[in-house]
Write a protein that binds this DNA or RNA. Structure first.
Lengths: 254, 254
DNA sequence: CGTGGCTTTGAATTACATCAAACCTTGTGG
DNA sequence: CCACAAGGTTTGATGTAATTCAAAGCCACG
């Protein structure tokens, strides 16, 4: 309330918003899709998949490119096929809260009539499937399984959102970072037990805006974890979980 | 991480958990229900309502009584008919985050297989309709409208959850309290324009745990609002919004 | 008309933010 | 292939909003 908004913005580089995402032709084969089993497409069997395939288009985004902005009319829903996306909301003075990171198999575009409730931007290079609402929703009548699946997805997101509220409202910086690293590991399934090496594609500033902290606090907390032997950080985008149990104890609040 | 957990708990009085909520007979008439139009029941017409009425039971809770706890097997879903309920999550050391307040017409019980994702407790005396999942879900096949309505509800909750993440992660104490008062007003539609008098049934400690603050900070911020002529607080559970526009400006971050 | 639980108010403390500057990377053009 | 911007990240010094500790009001209820 007292702090300087302009400074908040200066922390973050303005990312380019390209005129239009690259939109390709229909995917060759939904049946061969590598994330099919984890997406909402899994609601349909191989035969039914045709109705989906008929309306899907492939979209590619470069890092930093915006897919849609909060308030935009919600014309499409998407499936992440590859890459990482961040969802965020802004305050008028530029303060930002990232409400989620999306990975391959994740769904986005759930929205009410007021348009998208958050903006979506590519963290890495991204491939998505795009479905026009106008053509997808009619399928719900024929395949109620689809809507059932969407309800399941929304339910899971709601659960995650509640966990994140607990984190934002009640956890310390260390607890927040530990929780984040562990949920990243859970999400993308790190390789190399018993010291899994995590890829952390997002910037420190993204992590900060996800955890309700500043870049500096995130960096310092990483430093402290390193000094405690909890993690290794060979480079800024790689984290080795050296003592997972220690992290778990911290994440859950002692 | 450094602070004393025992103290955090002492702020909050342990509320009694009665052996069992009072469960009544089936409601006389769903068709005459005062919140029917705003609940998920609105998905069904008067005729179809019979299938719902056949499985519903009325439940009453005294203030402070627990409806269910996080992790409990999710056997039922509920509709709030009267009163106010709070949903919350706890950290092991007692820190609490309230994830939502529910008012008449609100739905609760959306949950995945791991059971309820939060606890639910009565703030005031509460009346609810209780539906056993086991008997409700079969109706989804016959009335896909029901599941469609649930998806709409989940979507709205998701949007609210994202707003709350922005609040918890990025807003100041004053911005949080102003946002809270305005959303309360929106939700329960205060009487008496142009200085609507709001009923705030929850305790300061509940408000604090909803906004990610301490009781003291909430109380002090109320005091500051009073001194600025933004609100009147005739008693702790009544707030008069004296300068709504001023509050709105604060809520959105200047 | 006490007594226990909220709420408010005050003083001291602190976790995290802010301000500032050095230090890396990574990509680019000479 | 190297120099050098330009971000992004780390580290240090200082400031502060909100918490913690403490105690006094204020109801509300038995």
């Amino acid at each position: 309330m007292t702090s300087d908004p302009s400074r908040r913005l200066s922390q973050r580089t303005e990312t380019p918003r390209y005129a239009e995402p690259r939109v390709g032709a229909a995917i060759p084969m939904c049946a061969a899709c590598e994330v099919r089993e984890v997406t909402f497409c899994s609601a349909l069997n191989e035969h039914e998949l045709a109705s989906i395939q008929a309306i899907v288009r492939q979209v590619r985004l470069a890092p930093g490119q915006t897919l849609f902005q909060e308030g935009d009319e919600a014309e499409n829903v998407f499936n992440v096929v590859g890459g990482v996306i961040k969802l965020y909301k802004l305050l008028r003075d530029g303060r930002r809260q990232i409400t989620g990171f999306l990975f391959p198999g994740d769904f986005l575009g759930i929205a009410s009539r007021d348009g998208y409730s958050h903006s979506a931007e590519a963290v890495t290079a991204v491939r998505l499937c795009r479905f026009p609402r106008r053509r997808l929703e009619p399928l719900f009548d024929r395949y109620p399984k689809l809507e059932h699946r969407l309800l399941g997805i929304a339910t899971d997101e709601l659960t995650a959102a509640q966990d994140q509220m607990l984190l934002l409202g009640r956890k310390t910086a260390a607890e927040k970072l530990a929780s984040f690293l562990l949920s990243l590991e859970r999400r993308i399934g790190a390789a190399g037990e018993p010291a899994p090496s995590l890829s952390v594609p997002m910037s420190r500033s993204d992590v900060a805006d996800y955890l309700g902290l500043t870049v500096e606090t995130v960096s310092r907390t990483f430093g402290r974890f390193r000094k405690l032997g909890l993690v290794d950080v060979p480079d800024a985008h790689t984290v080795v979980l050296r003592r997972r149990q220690g992290l778990e104890r911290i994440a859950d609040g002692d």
